[in-house]
């Protein structure tokens, strides 16, 4: 069974005259890195939100391992798929960076000692240790972005969707992120990368899906790049 299956998916925003997504048919495997690329306004973010049920498709079906996403709660989906928003401000809501990263773990009932261990690791890895006690919304844009990414990746979901994860990151932090993503992909956790940063995508993706004006105009598989999908 495919991990995510979209059949004949349409999406229409109430105040937009054209369709934001039209006739999307897509199957995504769990153990792979799928990139979604396309020009500004082509519907990448909308597609990501439809996949995870933040937006409900106005036509067609979205299935997560055979189950319709429309019948699951956001929390049920969120425990299986991590989601990083395009704008980090929308997903940061805790009083300190450390709390932010630990939030999901604490509330899913992890033991405090293990939470601390994971949080410490993430702070160190994404070079945020010095901001441990800082209010996340007072950070620089790139720092916020890293907090948002860390707070989702820390939960070790089987699948993650990252919407433009490289915005605001410098070349050095991009490399660190790419390394991390490659590592988790190699142990079987899959992801969808929404990005216009071709340089970043080129190095990582097994499959590149191209959107234009809400439609899929290109879909190229490049199996076996990372050596686990042969």
């Amino acid at each position: 069974m495919h991990f995510l299956t979209l059949t004949q998916v349409n999406f229409h925003y109430p105040k937009l005259s054209r369709m934001a997504l039209e006739n999307i048919n897509l199957e995504i495997e769990q153990k792979s890195i799928t990139a979604i690329i396309g020009p500004n306004g082509s519907g990448k973010t909308t597609l990501g939100k439809v996949m995870i049920g933040i937006l409900q498709a106005t036509g067609g079906k979205v299935l997560l391992q055979g189950e319709p996403v429309s019948e699951m709660s956001l929390a049920q989906i969120g425990r299986r798929i991590g989601y990083v928003f395009q704008n980090p401000d929308l997903q940061l809501f805790c009083a300190t960076v450390a709390e932010e990263i630990g939030f999901g773990l604490v509330n899913q009932g992890w033991e405090p000692a293990r939470v601390k261990e994971k949080v410490d690791f993430c702070l160190e890895f994404f070079q945020l240790a010095e901001y441990r006690h800082v209010f996340p919304l007072l950070l620089s844009q790139g720092e916020k972005q890293r907090v948002a990414i860390a707070s989702v990746l820390v939960a070790e979901n089987e699948f993650v969707i990252l919407d433009e994860p490289t915005i605001g990151l410098d070349a050095y932090r991009k490399k660190i992120l790419a390394g991390y993503l490659r590592k988790i992909a190699s142990i079987g956790r899959g992801m969808v990368l929404i990005s216009h940063d071709m340089g970043f995508v080129e190095h990582l993706a097994d499959r590149v899906i191209q959107l234009e004006k809400g439609r899929i105009v290109g879909d190229s598989e490049r199996k076996g790049r990372n050596g686990y999908d042969t």
Binding site: K15, L16, N40, T45, Q86, N87, I167, H196
Partner: peptide, 14 residues
């Protein structure tokens, strides 16, 4: 005519 709140990220920046 669009509402700036209801644009994509890149459109907002433009």
């Amino acid at each position: 005519e669009a509402n700036p709140y209801h644009l994509s990220g890149g459109e907002k920046h433009l």
